[in-house]
Design a protein around this nucleic acid. Sequence first.
DNA 1: CGTGCATTTGACGGGGCTCAATCGCCGTGG
DNA 2: CCACGGCGATTGAGCCCCGTCAAATGCACG
Lengths: 227, 227
Amino acid sequence: MLLDAFRATVPLPPALRDVRRAPAPDPMFGCIELAGGRMSFEPNTEIFGQDDPAEYVYQVLSGTLRTYRLLSDGRRQVSAFHFPGDVFGLESGAEHVSSAEAVTRTSVLVVRRSALLAAAAHNAEVARQLWQATARELQRSQEHGLLLIKSAPERVAAFLLGLAERLRTDGTVELPMSRRDIADYLGLTMETVSRTLTQFESNGIIELPVSRRVVLRNRSALRRLNG
Amino acid sequence: MLLDAFRATVPLPPALRDVRRAPAPDPMFGCIELAGGRMSFEPNTEIFGQDDPAEYVYQVLSGTLRTYRLLSDGRRQVSAFHFPGDVFGLESGAEHVSSAEAVTRTSVLVVRRSALLAAAAHNAEVARQLWQATARELQRSQEHGLLLIKSAPERVAAFLLGLAERLRTDGTVELPMSRRDIADYLGLTMETVSRTLTQFESNGIIELPVSRRVVLRNRSALRRLNG
DNA sequence: CGTGCATTTGACGGGGCTCAATCGCCGTGG
DNA sequence: CCACGGCGATTGAGCCCCGTCAAATGCACG
């Protein structure tokens, strides 16, 4: 959406349009500087690192990824999971404040930050969407902060509901991420996440046919837990 | 800064300039709709509430205020404290997602959100600062999230260091907010905050001449705690 | 000097963390 | 087809940090 608005400001020669539509063989070269390109990442590979220069802005095409920050002693705070359509890597400063890694095999759209900012400088619609995207991130971040003051069952319930909503599933959620990822997102240990899920299962609130698949059996109970 | 850029876009008749400079007797009327006005708030009074229409954007002139969200059972998450210069109340949606209250007697600059957005739509500099202000909030919010995964001493240490930095004090921090405010910001109870502070004091890391004044005796110890 | 609120201090219990063992899923090779 | 190994997830036991509840103290103001 943001990147759509951006691309609308860039008149592309037909050759580049073709490149953009085709899977780019090496998207670091070619059309990126102009209108963005595609890149793919294997699971658990880094897309950018904390303190790296924030040269590009990304939009998820397919797959799942996580952004996170590390404390000096190794504790990890997963700040967000990103799904198709989400924009990430958008910083106000010149450097990334968090790292981004692929959770599953992931394909993203890449745009030069400088090009995006330049477009925003003379196109009000791009500027508006730039702001909106950042404001949406802010809202998500505050929502995430709210999670962290709740009890473990409340956090897990909120996580499952949020995921179900974002992935628009009817009752069954496929978890792309590990228990450790979930734990680091919720500010818990993976043992506590696991225990809470089995607790939910024995209460009939969810089913866990396999560890990465959750069937929501009783959403209102989850919502009640959510506070 | 954001509001400065905004005001530069609005040619004011001299009469309004005068009103803006003088302490407004009733700032809800008069010049607000055009270029913003001043408002004052007594301690613990509401500036806006969660779910209120986000009609205005604010900048702190003097004093301290808190923004917070409530959980249905009454738990309160203070999302941020705002000090002179800070912009707050800036939402992407049409409604506030958090409430704002004065901590001390506070004076703020007020601008109609619609006027600000209109200015941003045809002035790139206003648009850029609008984005920057939001991005800065996002960064603060993520920093705040990082706090919430730490231990109680780490949180309190980070809080003191952050406050000392934002208030540009040399060694002595005057706390405008209560222990409960601090606790709700840090995701702790006020008892734990109090105990941690006395712990710090008996370790010689800080002094507490009175409960609202903290003298930082050993910043590197605090930084070490910070993780 | 007394009243009221903020803060501190104390005692106790529990929720979640730590450490450790076991289980289960899955790919690989015999 | 099964044995085996590896990794993620689950389960268990014990403990500790921090929350809860309650009382005492300090401080501002009439």
